[in-house]
């Protein structure tokens, strides 16, 4: 075989695939893969046999169940969110977004936030979709407003909130207002203070025709699922640890203290990492906490939680995550408290 034959590989392929320094150098790919699979299987079996009895088998079982449950639950949202994002990058012409969204980023931010209210999506899906929007030339601030708004104010979430709080429509209204406010202000803040170098946007993929376009779609999807999925697993493990290890009495004992209870529920929303379609039911079960504290829980949860931190770090880089996540958290707490004290 001649070395020169490799020109058959389309020229844009190197843009589609991640730079080589993202991965490791394998010795022999398939052998390494099988060995690692077997190794992790052995590790789990060994853990089951020798470590588990020493802990508390029931706690280990519960941890594993919650871990698998968070992963299983997020998987369809991740797969279809990534598919949507890959479809946006591969099939939607770049000019489309500049037509839909106002040209000025300052005006595009609220429009993008409102778009989030229309599209039903889980937070796991909105991260890759926002990445796809940025890759398609949407202003990062607008894409970020969409990222925050989409899982928080979409119709599915609002309906589940109404179901979880029967006879309390002000909870739904408060959630909608405070979440949209947070998303838009966060977008504007990024527009005013954010720097492009903090944000790692995947390179814009040139659209190829026919076969090449499908191939670009396929490899973009495979890459994003694997990458985001790896971080999702980190988030799932963290959430399972919190679920099994955080003493329930700590949470109950602070319920009555005004400001502390708001901060505790905000922190709990981050740690519990429940999907936005379910968090209303959890908030409803947190009886003893004030309505405002529970509203803050509902506003923070879809925007900042362990699996989102992991996903955002994976998609946009650490420099982005360490700035954007605290910003969002602070904004969500403040606007949740403000809206709660007016409405509830």
């Amino acid at each position: 075989m001649m070395a020169g034959v490799s020109v058959e590989s389309p020229a844009w392929e190197d843009d589609v695939l991640p730079p080589p320094d993202w991965g490791r150098k394998p010795r022999s790919p398939l052998t390494t893969a099988s060995a690692l699979f077997a190794g992790s299987a052995l590790l789990l079996v060994a853990g089951r046999l020798w470590i588990a009895p020493a802990l508390d088998v029931r706690a280990v079982d519960a941890w594993t169940t919650v871990f698998v449950a968070v992963c299983v639950q997020a998987l369809p949202f991740l797969v279809f969110g990534v598919a949507l994002s890959a479809a946006i990058t591969a099939f939607v012409p770049a000019g489309f977004w500049t037509r839909v969204l106002p040209r000025r980023p300052g005006a595009a931010v609220p429009v993008a936030g409102a778009l989030g209210a229309v599209l039903p999506g889980c937070e796991c899906a909105s991260v890759p979709v926002a990445g796809g929007l940025m890759a398609r030339g949407v202003a990062p601030s607008a894409a970020l407003a969409f990222l925050l708004a989409a899982p928080a104010v979409n119709p599915v979430v609002l309906v589940s909130t109404a179901v979880a709080f029967p006879g309390r429509p002000e909870m739904v209204a408060g959630r909608f207002a405070a979440s949209l406010l947070t998303a838009v202000v966060a977008g504007w803040a990024w527009l005013a203070f954010g720097r492009g170098s903090w944000l790692r946007v995947l390179p814009q993929r040139p659209s190829a025709a026919g076969d090449g376009r499908w191939d670009a779609f396929r490899s973009a999807m495979a890459h994003d699922i694997l990458h985001a999925g790896g971080f999702l697993v980190v988030g799932g493990a963290a959430a399972a640890t919190i679920n099994v290890a955080l003493p329930a009495s700590w949470v109950a004992s602070v319920a009555g203290i005004p400001v502390v209870s708001i901060l505790v529920l905000a922190l709990l929303a981050v740690l519990m990492s429940i999907c936005s379609e379910a968090d209303a039911f959890v908030a409803a079960s947190l009886t003893g906490f004030s309505p405002t504290a529970r509203l803050v829980f509902l506003v923070v949860g879809p925007m900042v939680d362990l699996k989102l931190i992991a996903l955002q770090t994976g998609f946009f880089g650490r420099a982005f995550a360490v700035r954007f996540i605290p910003l969002t958290f602070a904004l969500a707490v403040v606007s949740g408290t403000a809206v709660g004290s007016v409405l509830l």
Partner: peptide, 9 residues
Amino acid sequence: HGPGVAWLL
């Protein structure tokens, strides 16, 4: 090569 973090999956 893809991201190493994917092994966690």
